[in-house]
C-alpha cells in the first residue's frame, strides 16, 4: 500500500495504471477508484481557487492507518492514495483512492471506508478563494450511512 502527497496537478488515471503495473498480474478481480475533484462552488458561493494545507508526516501516517484498517475489515489486495496540496483550480483532482481486490464487494467497501475516514481524520485544511475573499472551510460534508457501516464493522 502506498500514500503520496503531490504539490502539483496529477493525472489520477495515469498514476492508477502505473501503480497497477507494479502489482502481481492476474491476482485481482477488480479495482475500484474514487477521484475527488475541485468544485467551482461551495456553501452557496462561487469558488475560483483553493489552497490545501497539510501536516507533513502526520497526514501520510493517518492516511496509511486508515488504509490498514480497511485492509483488516475487507479482503483487499492493495490500495493506493494520492492527495494534492497547495494551490488548486476548479476541476483539478484533489484525491485518488484506488483499491484492488479479488471481488468487487471488498473493493467497493474498502474504497468508501478509506475516503470517508481520510476526510474525517487526515490533517488537511481547505482555504477557498471566493468573491467575498478567502475563507477556511470549517467542515466537510458527511457520508453518515457509510460512517455507520464502518463503525459497526470496527466494533464487530
Amino acid at each position: 500500500m502506498k500514500v503520496e502527497i503531490h504539490g502539483i496537478p496529477f493525472d489520477p488515471y495515469a498514476v492508477t495504471r502505473d501503480y497497477e503495473n507494479t502489482l502481481p498480474k492476474g491476482k485481482h478481480g477488480g479495482v475500484v477508484t474514487f477521484v475527488g475533484t475541485m468544485r467551482d462552488f461551495n456553501d452557496g458561493h462561487d469558488v475560483s481557487s483553493m489552497f490545501l494545507d497539510h501536516y507533513p508526516g502526520m497526514t501520510e501516517a493517518h492516511i496509511l492507518g486508515v488504509m490498514e484498517e480497511a485492509a483488516r475489515l475487507s479482503n483487499i489486495m492493495n490500495a493506493y492514495v494520492v492527495h494534492r496540496v497547495g494551490d488548486i483550480k476548479p476541476s483539478e483532482p484533489i484525491v485518488l483512492v484506488a483499491v484492488w481486490a479479488a471481488h468487487r464487494a471488498d473493493a467497493f467497501d474498502a474504497c468508501r471506508y478509506i475516503i470517508n475516514y481520510l476526510k474525517e481524520r487526515a490533517p488537511f485544511w481547505k482555504r477557498e478563494a471566493t468573491p467575498q475573499g478567502k475563507r477556511w472551510v470549517e467542515h466537510n460534508t458527511a457520508d453518515p450511512a457509510a460512517a455507520a457501516i464502518g463503525r459497526a464493522k470496527r466494533s464487530a
Binding site: 475527488g36 490545501l52 497539510h54 501536516y55 502526520m58 497526514t59 492527495h83 484533489i94 484525491v95 475516503i115 481520510l118 476526510k119 474525517e120 481524520r121 487526515a122 490533517p123 488537511f124 485544511w125 481547505k126 477556511w136 472551510v137 470549517e138 467542515h139 466537510n140
Partner: peptide
C-alpha cells in the same frame, strides 16, 4: 504539539 481546526481534506 500541534493545534488546528477540524480537518477538511478529501
Amino acid at each position: 504539539v500541534a493545534f488546528f481546526p477540524p480537518v477538511t481534506g478529501g
